[in-house]
Design a protein around this nucleic acid. Structure first.
Lengths: 349, 349
DNA sequence: CTGAAAGCGCTTACAG
DNA sequence: CTGAAAGCGCTTACAG
């Protein structure tokens, strides 16, 4: 413990062992054999490095080599289940390649994101897993121009030439709609956000497609498009008013989980019974959806697989893994999973 | 955009402007006046730096100065509301002092944490906000021995001499118990974890104290202590069995939110009605607790204030803020708040 | 008012 | 088999 207290440099260790910085560096980097360092010298150095708690200063290494062995996960928000699961798996996977993981959040705030990325860019962080937000194109391109590897998850930007991996949003909603239709629901409302992201557009398109497939009429009035970024209260209130004025609906499809959660609150406020008075299904799972009595039916994203795949794609770019070995060479659309719970079980009468 | 593509060094900028690295450095660091650089030279450099997108390489700065202007939030888990809220506020506060924030998770995994901290230690990260886990004493002390500032949140380690800020756990449970007793509940079970953390011990102590204060008998059998780290299924199953064998209880106190959530699932499984058959209260709020029909009564932690205070304490240590200015000089116990929802409202008959 | 030089801690040709 | 030297991009006494 005591020996560890002072951070010791390569020079000092060289002096201590009666060798040179060069030799120490070779040994510490496992190049002893390659460089034909005698076993006795190598052992001496290794032992001394243990004893004095020496390890190379990553700052200096990075400055010198241009590498950091760090990848960055940059998400819209570090709250929520998506990030939590993503982070956990990315970390585990990256570790196998000898990479550390750091996190940052963009909070859909462009100036702040820019600021952060400027910092990161120069920290020699080699790879990025990003949930892109509109307006980030340039920033990502800048990263790439500087030789950094980027993979987009959850969404993607058309103008950015980086592989993306996300759930098949269209298929997810189609599956959900089929489930509702088969369960006998015919008046299905759709609650979504006005955020201009591909996945949201896909989900809405699939909603219409779903209605059409099951010969149900589309009525624009049944789509509630909520402004992004409004407060929680406003959100709940907006949904509650919608419920109030759309009593004819027998099922609700929420396009993403934060909307579904607010929806549940609104439903509670209006004293509406699920599924007796209205059925409900939501894109993205959440804890609240399986604690709710009877459970809420959801379309689950394969987050683990998204994480695994994105690390794989990143490592390919970094040359740590051949495309052949993994079979993944580009964009990935992963299948969603329908989890049926009580909220879409039409009560028998 | 184009100009930004190549990262340019101080040397190059000096050449471009016909000055020296020294002068550029002074200007870039706002020391132009202090160093009596002529206005014309300073302007020329500033303009050129804009044009070429120059900013000092933080790696090199850090290596040279030993500073990074980065603080690190190291939490047990990046999932969950506690982290999400903490992170957001810490970021906002730290920004005011010119600090960036990075995140890491320990996942209650000591070797992994050690590994990560070793990396961080040498990245010249100046301050740490940590949710400590047992066994981290040495690591934190090591950090401090190297001159890093540390603040513990959510919990603390007795042997570590760093300020900590957390909710008053004892008071929180006492408040909750009083609420239950006043609402007429007399047979109160307590579900907690076997994790050896101060806050857990406090909560359990307060449970006993609460019973005593209200002249309710303490029965060891009513305390369910769940092994930390068991799977979700086991968790739900364990609670379900407990419910099965403790039908006499009229109220349940969950010591932390992940237990409460599992509890809700178990309750659903057993088809028990809340609050009709059993009342429920939980330490720590969670989304699932206000979406549950009627809502679940909770003891809420003042997370924002915890975040704000911890940054303040950290900045004091870093000499960025005087203790006098903030009035906080050491450990802080912040008051919890009781939020009464439907789960503890005894149905009138 | 401005610049040359040392040094932060490393790695890597190069030389022997 | 091993070491001296250059250089990554900065900052900061020191000198003039």
């Amino acid at each position: 413990m005591d020996a560890l207290k002072r951070k010791i440099s390569i020079k000092e260790l060289a002096r201590i062992t009666g060798t040179s910085a060069t030799t120490v560096s070779f040994v510490m980097n496992g190049k002893a054999e390659e460089m034909r360092i005698s076993k006795s010298v190598a052992d001496k150095i290794l032992k001394a490095s243990k004893q004095h708690g020496y390890s190379p200063n990553p700052l200096a290494v990075s400055l010198r080599t241009g590498h950091s062995n760090i990848i960055m996960v940059l998400v819209e928000s570090v709250s929520g289940n998506f990030f939590a699961t993503l982070a956990k798996v990315v970390e585990a996977e990256a570790e196998q390649y000898g990479y550390k993981v750091m996190y940052g959040s963009t909070d859909n705030n462009l100036p702040k994101t820019r600021d952060m990325m400027k910092l990161l860019r120069q920290m020699n962080i080699e790879g990025y897993i990003v949930t892109p937000v509109a307006g980030m194109q340039e920033d990502i391109q800048l990263l790439q121009a500087q030789g950094k590897s980027v993979v987009m998850v959850d969404s993607y930007l058309d103008k950015v030439e980086a592989p993306h991996v996300l759930v098949d949003n269209f298929e997810g909603v189609v599956k959900g709609m089929a489930h509702l239709a088969e369960a006998g629901y015919s008046n299905i409302g759709f609650v979504t956000s006005d955020l201009a992201l591909v996945q949201m557009a896909e989900r809405e398109k699939a909603y219409k497609k779903g209605l059409q497939s099951h010969k149900l009429p589309f009525d624009k009035k049944n789509v509630l498009k909520i402004p992004y970024g409004i407060s929680r209260e406003e959100l709940v209130h907006t949904i509650a008013s919608y419920l109030e004025t759309h009593k004819g609906l027998d099922a609700l499809f929420f396009a993403t989980n934060y909307l579904g959660i607010a929806g549940l609150e609104a439903i509670g406020k209006q004293k509406i019974k699920v599924p007796k008075e209205v059925a409900m299904i939501c894109f993205d799972d959440h804890e609240a959806f399986h604690t709710y009595p009877g459970g809420i039916t959801v379309i689950e994203q394969p987050i683990e697989e998204i994480a695994r795949t994105s690390v794989e794609l990143l490592m390919q770019q970094l040359g740590k893994k051949s495309a052949a070995a993994s079979g993944n060479t580009g964009n990935q659309k992963l299948p969603p999973r329908l989890i049926v719970r009580g909220s879409t079980k039409k009560p028998v009468r």
